[in-house]
């Protein structure tokens, strides 16, 4: 063997930014994550050109998946054009030549921070969720090694206990987003800080979901048609946010997750959080030919 067989001609940057060895590692870890739904697979997590905590985990997965023929959508808190989403989308385009889209229905890969789109994802789509803290047990066990033992033993007693304590103290479970959920009846995972509204969308979903925490170096996944059950007590139902009767002041849409906009007079108005879904409605009202996808919720109620 010669030196030049060990290396290759100098290039400023690899396709998809990550070099081949980084991508191979990502691929190996993603496969394990799919094979053991909800289990947190440790990975090396390379540095990428955005800061840790800004979606580096999701970005590494997306960079591994993209091809020039891919169509990619990036959302942050529901919006395609928020600061971080647009910066990530620009970067993805530059290093992968993939086409950008804002339309959920057009995308092959959707990288998202803290929301699942309102339009139903299909079997051929991949949702990549950015995860700040992959460990649902962190509030009851900050030591990662101990938490891992608890997952190994499927020992979720302490987690149940804190949910129960919330019930006793406040009359309801106070978990806002990141609602801990049992995957495939074995591993409790965090669905990432999506609102409670979005968690039921994961249950037996048609799409593949990959959740990746770059700073904490863990990947977990929910394959299509997999059970995702929020931890609830038999006699205390799971409660989504009370947004069913709110109407978006821009698009007039009712029955979806809303952003609350405080008004000067002390009241609130609302806009639909899935920004592009709202935009599609507005464009349709203006007479443009727009296809609206089937949604998980209809008139504020979950479609089953």
């Amino acid at each position: 063997m010669k030196l030049d067989q060990l290396t290759k001609p100098w290039e400023a940057f690899s396709y998809g930014f990550l070099d081949q060895s980084a991508k191979r590692e990502m691929r190996r870890r993603i496969l394990k994550a799919i094979a053991i739904p909800g289990y947190q697979v440790p990975y090396a997590s390379r540095e990428v050109p955005i800061a840790r905590g800004w979606g580096t985990g999701g970005l590494q997965v997306t960079l591994t998946l993209l091809k020039p023929s891919s169509v990619v959508k990036v959302i942050d808190q529901g919006a395609d054009d928020s600061v971080n989403a647009s910066s990530i989308r620009k970067f993805l385009r530059r290093v992968s030549s993939a086409r950008e889209t804002l339309d959920t229905m057009e995308a092959d890969v959707i990288q998202s921070r803290h929301r699942i789109p309102e339009e139903k994802l299909r079997e051929d789509q991949i949702l990549v969720l950015q995860v700040p803290n992959p460990e649902p047990l962190r509030p009851v066990q900050p030591d990662m090694s101990e938490a891992r033992i608890m997952h190994g033993d499927a020992d979720y007693g302490q987690l149940w206990l804190t949910l129960y304590e919330q019930l006793v103290r406040s009359g309801r479970i106070m978990q806002g987003s990141s609602y801990p959920s049992m995957v495939n009846g074995r591993h409790v995972m965090t669905p990432s800080p999506i609102p409670r509204w979005d968690v039921p969308k994961m249950h037996m979903a048609a799409n593949l979901t990959i959740l990746s925490a770059g700073r904490e170096k863990r990947i977990h996944a929910v394959p299509p048609y997999t059970r995702v059950e929020p931890l609830v007590f038999d006699d205390v139902p799971y409660r989504i946010e009370d947004h069913a009767d709110k109407t978006c002041y821009r698009s007039g849409v009712t029955g979806f997750f809303m952003n609350e906009l405080p008004q000067d007079d002390g009241s609130s108005s609302f806009e639909v959080s899935d920004s592009q879904y709202g935009v599609k409605h507005i464009r349709r009202q203006e007479g443009e030919p727009v296809t609206l996808g089937e949604t998980y919720y209809r008139e504020g109620r979950l479609e089953r």
């Binding site: 690899s14 081949q20 691929r27 799919i34 591994t64 030549s97 593949l208």
Partner: peptide, 24 residues
Amino acid sequence: LLVPTAEDIRANATFDALMWGLAR
């Protein structure tokens, strides 16, 4: 825009099959 090498194309397409193979 960066474009893939032949090696990138081969590995990406192959991984697609491997990934969907386990996912479905």
